[in-house]
Design a protein around this nucleic acid. Structure first.
Length: 1030
RNA sequence: GCCGGGAUGGCGGAACGGUAGACGCGACGGACUCAAAAUCCGUUGUCCGAAAGGGCGUGCGGGUUCGAAUCCCGCUCCCGGUACCA
C-alpha cells in the first residue's frame, strides 16, 4: 500500500504513516482537516523524495482518492492529483492557516490538497449571491443600461439541455456586459398558459394550475443550478392574474383602437364532442384522443388587425437581426403587388378577384371560387346543386393542412353559373375548387391556364379552354391545342386588345411593363385598381380553451358585444372547473363565470374564448420592468430607462410567429399612445424617445439545437474489384443487418464524396469507388437508386424520450458541475448552428475547469524567472483578453473558450517551470479568472475570493488589453514561390518592404527555385509574407 | 417547387483574399500502476521518403487573382423554413 519515499497521510484516523523519508508533523489531522469541501477519505500522499527532480512517485490505495505527485525541485514540490473526476488539486496553505495543519520541517505541508467539489461550491455561491442581492438590477441613470433578454420557457416540467444551450451563453453575455460597465437587466419568467397543462388535467386528473406551478418550481430550482444571473425579483408568470390582467387591459386598448375585431374563421369542430379542437389535437382529420371525426366550420372569433402593419413590419432597417430571420419574416408577410379586378356574374353579382397578373386578363377562360365563397349558392344552377353541395361537404371534412397538401390532383365542380370577363365580354364558366382559399385575396380567382401552372392543370383535368396571351421571346408561338404546360416566362403580350405588343418580364407589380399597362388601362376603364395583397393574415387570437387569458368581453342580450371595463379587470379564470372528457373548455359550462351583467346592468354572457398564448409573450419584456406595478402594465419610470431590449436571444423556431407578433404589438402600442408616459419620463431624464418604440428588440441572435448523440451511416455491402487500395464497386446494397463477410466490403459509410465512399468495416476504414455503371440498391428509397442517395451520419436526430437519447442536464451537473456544463455547451458548437451531443467531449471542459482550479490553488514559485518568458506570458495574456473580449461581444463563444484553453496550456507550462516573475503570474491568473467569470461563474468566484478578494468577481471590470503589451515583437514571415509556401523566417514585426524582400530572396530555398534567374514579380506584405513569382 | 443556410482531419470545430486544420474530443506510443481508471509526456490531414524534403489536400467542375476554404459562374448533396397565396 505504501511506496517507499512517499509520505502518506491517512485521513480520518489521524494516523500518519511515514515510509522512510521526511515525516510530516501533522497535528490533529483527520476530521479537523475537512474544510470547504475537502473530505479526504483514503490516502493522501505527498512526495518530495530527495534529489529526485522530475521524477514521480505515488502511493496507492484501494480508496478512491489517490494523490500522485511529481517533483521538479525537492524543496518545492508540486502535486498532480487524481481521483474519480481527476480533480483533486492542490490547495494553497495560507487559506487554511489555523486549520490545525502544522508544517513539519519542510514545505510539504503546503501541499495540503483541496478537492474541487463543484456541488458544494455551487450551492454555496447560489445562496450567497442571493443573500448579497448580487443580481438585483436597479435603474441608475448615471450608468449606461443594457437590457438582455432570452426567451422565457414554457413550464413543461424539466429543464432540458436545449434550455441550457439557449440560456447559458445569453447569461454569459449578460455577465460580460455587466463587467464591461453596463447596468444590466437580465430577467426570466414562465410562459405558463397553454394546452399541455390542460391535457395533463384531463389525462392525469390534476388541475392545470397545480401542474403548471409544480413545473415552475422545479424549473426555477434547475435554473438556479445553472448559475444564471436572472433577477428573480422581476420574475413574471403569465398565468398569474397580476400578469394576465394587463393582457386583458391591452386587449381593451386594441379594441378601442379598432385593432381588435370579431370575424369569421375556420375552426376544427368535432360534431360528436360539440367542441373546438386545437390544430395539435387533430391528426388525420380525427381527434387524436377519441378518434372522432373533425370538420372545418366557420365560427366568430377575435382577431387583431395585424395586416394593417404589414408594410411597416417589412421594414427591418433599424434592426440588427440575422438576415435569414428577416427573410423568413418577409416571406411570411408575403407582399404581392397586382390588381383587384371586378367581374360580374350573369345575374349581376360582383365577383372581385385579386391577381398579380392583370396583364393576362385576356387569357382568363374560367373563374374559380373557394368552396365556401358566399356567392356559390347564387351561382349554382339546379342541375349542379347536388354536385356542388357534395363537394362543399367534402371540402369541409378536410383540415386546412390536408387541403393544402401538395401533389394532390386538382379537384373541383362546375357551379353551372357564368361570369363575364370585363375586358372582352367573354362568357366564362365559374367553378369551385379547394385549391382556391377563402382566406387569401377575395376567395375567388380568374383562371388563366395558359400562364398559371395550377390553372393549367385544372383546365386540362376538366377540359376547359386555354388561350395564350404571352408570346415567348425568340420561340415558336404558343399554340392551343397542344400546350404541354403553362408558360410563365417573359415575352410579348398578344391577343389582348389594348395592351398587345407590350413587353412582359419577370419583374413583380408595376416593375413589369405589361402589368403596369394593364393596371393603367383597368383603372382608366373603372374595371379595377392597383392592389396589394399579403400572405399574412390578421392574427386570430381566440382559442376555445380553458387554460389561457380570458378575453374580457361580454355578449349582451341584444347581441352586441362590449368590453369589460378596466376597473373590473382582471376577468379571473375560475379555478373550480371540471374537465369534460370531450376536451371542451370548462368555461363554456361554468355558470358562475358565464353569467354577468353588461354596462347597463342587463344580464349578459361572458366571452368564453381565451387568448392565444402568443399574446402573453408579445409584451412580457415590459412586465419584467415592474412585475408588481398596479397602476399600469409597466412603470414608465422603469421603461424610460430600460427600453428597448438591446439583445434578444432564442430559438430560430420562433423567428416568424412570436417575433412578428411582438413587433406588431409594440407598433400598435406606440400608435395607441401607450408609450406616451414613458416618452415623457425619458424626456425628464434627458433621453430622446424618438424612434425608441418602433421595435421591441433591437438585436436578435438565434441559437441552434442540440441533437441526440446516436449516429450511424448506411450499412452497405459492396462488391467489385480491388484496384490497388480501393474497391471499384459494381454493386452497392444498403442492408442494416448485413453480416461481415457477406460481401467484398461490409460496413458503415462514414463519408461520401461524390461516388467515393469511406466505409468503416469495424476493423478498418476502406475506400470504395462506386463505378458509374454500378447498381445501387437502397430498399428504403423507392425507384431507381443512385450513389447520391447513400447517406452518412443521417441518424442524428432531435432528442426525444421515445428515442431514448435525451441528455439530462441535472445528471451532468451532478457529475461535472454547472461550470463544466456551461463551458462545454459554449465551447463545443457554433452557437447559431447547434449539433449532436457528444458525451465524451465534455471531458475536455471538465479538464479545463479542473486545470483552472489547479492553477489558482497551486502555490506558484518563480524558481527560474526569465524576463523574456515573463514578457511572453504577459503578451499572451493580453492577446487572450483581446480575443475573449471580441468573441463574447460577437456571440462567438467557442473561440472565446478556446482562447482561454490556450492560455491555460501556457500557464500550466509556466507553473511547471516557474519561469515568470510572481507579479506576472498573478496578473495572468487574475486575468484568466476574470475572463472566465462570465462563462464559469461559480468556480471563478470561489477562486477569486479564495485569493483574498473581498468583492465578488462578478462586480469587477472586464480586463482591458494593452495593445502595446499584446503586440508581437517578432513574427514568422512566410516566403512563397508562386503562391506556395517554401520557407519561413522569424523577423521583427516592424520589418520594412526592402528588408523583407532582401531576406526572402536570400533564402536558400528560394534560390533553389530561382535557379539563378530573376523573379518576375515580388509581392511583399510585411511582416507576414513575401510571394515571389518566377 | 420556392426562400434561406451549409459542406474543412476519425468527430465537434478554427482560419481580416496571405502559414489550412487554432482549441477540444478520439486514436496511437510512452511514463506511472500488479492491473485498470485517472494523471503526466509525445505523435496524430494524407501519400512518398531513413531523414532533409517533396506530392496531394477545404463536396464536384470551371473562372478571377501573384495568391482562393474565403470572391464569381455552373452543379451535387445536406439542414432549416414554407408550401395550391392567385
Amino acid at each position: 500500500m505504501v511506496v517507499a519515499g512517499v509520505v502518506v497521510l491517512v485521513a480520518g484516523s489521524g494516523a500518519v504513516v511515514g515510509a522512510g523519508v521526511e515525516v510530516l508533523d501533522v497535528a490533529g489531522l483527520g476530521d479537523a482537516v475537512v474544510v470547504d469541501g475537502f473530505k479526504p477519505e483514503g490516502v493522501v500522499a505527498v512526495d518530495p523524495p530527495p534529489h529526485a527532480a522530475n521524477t514521480r512517485a505515488a502511493a496507492t490505495t484501494t480508496a478512491a482518492n489517490v494523490l500522485c505527485t511529481r517533483v521538479q525541485d525537492p524543496s518545492r514540490p508540486v502535486i498532480r492529483t487524481l481521483g474519480a473526476g481527476g480533480l483533486f488539486p492542490v490547495m494553497r496553505r495560507d487559506h487554511h492557516a489555523g486549520q490545525s495543519l502544522q508544517s513539519g520541517a519542510n514545505h510539504a505541508t503546503n501541499l495540503l490538497t483541496m478537492q474541487y467539489d463543484p456541488a458544494a461550491l455551487e450551492r454555496k455561491w447560489q445562496d450567497r449571491w442571493e443573500a448579497e442581492g448580487l443580481y438585483r438590477s436597479r435603474v441608475d441613470w448615471d450608468k449606461p443600461k443594457h437590457y438582455a433578454l432570452t426567451m422565457l420557457p414554457y413550464p413543461s416540467g424539466d429543464l432540458h439541455i436545449g434550455h441550457w444551450y439557449a440560456m447559458t451563453p445569453s447569461d454569459a453575455r449578460a455577465r460580460y456586459m455587466r463587467m464591461k460597465g453596463f447596468n444590466v437587466l437580465f430577467p426570466m419568467g414562465f410562459d405558463a398558459f397553454g394546452l399541455p397543462a390542460e391535457n395533463a388535467a384531463v389525462q392525469r386528473n390534476i388541475h392545470p394550475a397545480t401542474w403548471t406551478y409544480e413545473n415552475i418550481d422545479k424549473m426555477r430550482a434547475q435554473m438556479r443550478s445553472m448559475g444564471t444571473m436572472f433577477d428573480w425579483e422581476r420574475e413574471v408568470v403569465s398565468c398569474e392574474p397580476r400578469y394576465y390582467r394587463w393582457s386583458q387591459w391591452f386587449f381593451n386598448r386594441l379594441f378601442e383602437g379598432e385593432l381588435a375585431y370579431r370575424g369569421e374563421a375556420l375552426v376544427n369542430w368535432s360534431p360528436t364532442l360539440q367542441t373546438v379542437l386545437a390544430n395539435e389535437q387533430v391528426i388525420d382529420g380525427k381527434d387524436e384522443r377519441t378518434g372522432q371525426p373533425v370538420v372545418q366550420r366557420m365560427m366568430e372569433q377575435w382577431f387583431f388587425a395585424m395586416t394593417r402593419y404589414a408594410d411597416e413590419l417589412l421594414d427591418f432597417e433599424s434592426l440588427d437581426w440575422p438576415e435569414p430571420i428577416r427573410t423568413m419574416q418577409a416571406n411570411w408577410i408575403g407582399r404581392s403587388e397586382g390588381a383587384e379586378v371586378t367581374f360580374h356574374t350573369e345575374s349581376g353579382d360582383e365577383i372581385r378577384v385579386f391577381t398579380t397578373r392583370p396583364d393576362t386578363l385576356w387569357g382568363a377562360t374560367f373563374m374559380v371560387l373557394a368552396p365556401e365563397h358566399p356567392l356559390v349558392d347564387a351561382l349554382t344552377t339546379a342541375e349542379q346543386s347536388e354536385a356542388v353541395a357534395a363537394y362543399q361537404a367534402q371540402a369541409a371534412a378536410q383540415t386546412e393542412i390536408e387541403r393544402m397538401e401538395t401533389e394532390r390532383d386538382k379537384t373541383g365542380v362546375f357551379t353551372g353559373g357564368y361570369a363575364v370577363n370585363p375586358v372582352n365580354q367573354e362568357r366564362i364558366p365559374v367553378w369551385i375548387a379547394d385549391y382556391v382559399l377563402l382566406t387569401y385575396g377575395s376567395g375567388a380567382i380568374m383562371a388563366v391556364p395558359a400562364h398559371d401552372e395550377r390553372d393549367f392543370e385544372f383546365a386540362r383535368r376538366f377540359d376547359l379552354p386555354v388561350v395564350p396571351v404571352i408570346q415567348p421571346e425568340g420561340q415558336d408561338p404558343l399554340r392551343e391545342p397542344g400546350m404541354q404546360a403553362s408558360y410563365v416566362g417573359p415575352g410579348v403580350i398578344i391577343n389582348s386588345g389594348p395592351i398587345d405588343g407590350v413587353v412582359t418580364n419577370l419583374e413583380k407589380g408595376r416593375q413589369n411593363p405589361s402589368v403596369a399597362a394593364a393596371i393603367d388601362w383597368l383603372e382608366d376603364k373603372g374595371m379595377g385598381r392597383e392592389s396589394v395583397n399579403y400572405r399574412l393574415r390578421d392574427w386570430l387570437i381566440s382559442r376555445q380553451r380553458y387554460w389561457g387569458t380570458p378575453i374580457p368581453m361580454v355578449h349582451r342580450s341584444d347581441g352586441a358585444v362590449e368590453p369589460v371595463p378596466d376597473s373590473d379587470l382582471p376577468v379571473l379564470l375560475p379555478e373550480d372547473v371540471e374537465f369534460a372528457p370531450s376536451g371542451r373548455s370548462p368555461l363554456t359550462h361554468h355558470e358562475g363565470f358565464l353569467h354577468t351583467v353588461d354596462s347597463e346592468g342587463e344580464g349578459a354572457t361572458r366571452e368564453t374564448d381565451t387568448m392565444d398564448t402568443f399574446m402573453c409573450s408579445s409584451w412580457y419584456q415590459l412586465r419584467y420592468l415592474s412585475p408588481g406595478f398596479e397602476a399600469a402594465p409597466f412603470d414608465p419610470e422603469e421603461a424610460a430607462y430600460w427600453l428597448p431590449v438591446d439583445v434578444y436571444t432564442g430559438g430560430a423556431e420562433h423567428a416568424v410567429m412570436h417575433l412578428l407578433y411582438t413587433r406588431f404589438f409594440t407598433k400598435a402600442m406606440r400608435d395607441l399612445g401607450l408609450f406616451d408616459d414613458t416618452a415623457a419620463a425619458m424626456r425628464s431624464h434627458g433621453r430622446d424617445p424618438e424612434g425608441l418604440f418602433d421595435e421591441p428588440m433591437l438585436m436578435y441572435r438565434s441559437q441552434g439545437q442540440i441533437l441526440g448523440e446516436e449516429r450511424a451511416g448506411d450499412r452497405v455491402v459492396a462488391d467489385g474489384e480491388w484496384d490497388g487500395e480501393r474497391l471499384m464497386a459494381m454493386s452497392v446494397r444498403v442492408d442494416p443487418v448485413a453480416a461481415a463477410g457477406s460481401g467484398e466490403v461490409v460496413g458503415e459509410i462514414v463519408r461520401r464524396t461524390e461516388n467515393v465512399l469511406r466505409v468503416d468495416t469495424g476493423t478498418d476504414i476502406v475506400t470504395v469507388e462506386v463505378r458509374a455503371d454500378a447498381t445501387v440498391d437502397i430498399p428504403s428509397i423507392a425507384g431507381i437508386n443512385d450513389v447520391n442517395q447513400l447517406r452518412q451520419h443521417l441518424e442524428i436526430q432531435r432528442m426525444s424520450k421515445s428515442r431514448g437519447n435525451v441528455v439530462d442536464p441535472d445528471e451532468l451537473v451532478a457529475r461535472y458541475g454547472a461550470d463544466t456544463v456551461r463551458t462545454y455547451l459554449m465551447f463545443a458548437y457554433e452557437w447559431q448552428k447547434g449539433g449532436p451531443w457528444d458525451s465524451r467531449g465534455i471531458l475536455g471542459a471538465s479538464r479545463f475547469i479542473g486545470d483552472v482550479w489547479k492553477l489558482a490553488t497551486a502555490e506558484y514559485e518563480a524558481t527560474d524567472p526569465a524576463a523574456e518568458r515573463s514578457a511572453e506570458l504577459r503578451r499572451l495574456v493580453h492577446q487572450a483578453i483581446q480575443k475573449v473580449d471580441r468573441d463574447l461581444g460577437a456571440f462567438k463563444w467557442n473561440t472565446a473558450v478556446a482562447a482561454l484553453m490556450s492560455l491555460r496550456n501556457e500557464m500550466l507550462d509556466v507553473l511547471r517551470s516557474g519561469s515568470v516573475q510572481p507579479d506576472v503570474w498573478r496578473e495572468a491568473l487574475d486575468s484568466l479568472l476574470l475572463l472566465l467569470a462570465p462563462i464559469a461563474p461559480f468556480v471563478t468566484e470561489e477562486l477569486w475570493r479564495m485569493a483574498g478578494n473581498e468583492a465578488s468577481i462578478h462586480l469587477q471590470p472586464f480586463p482591458e488589453a494593452d495593445p502595446e503589451i499584446a503586440r508581437e515583437e517578432s513574427v514568422t514571415m512566410v516566403i512563397q514561390v508562386n503562391g506556395k509556401v517554401r520557407d519561413r523566417l522569424e523577423v521583427g514585426a516592424d520589418i520594412d518592404e526592402a528588408t523583407a524582400t532582401a531576406l526572402a530572396l536570400a533564402s536558400d530555398r528560394v534560390q533553389g527555385f530561382l535557379d539563378g534567374g530573376e523573379p518576375k514579380k515580388v509581392i511583399v506584405r510585411p511582416p507576414k509574407l513575401v510571394n515571389i513569382v518566377v
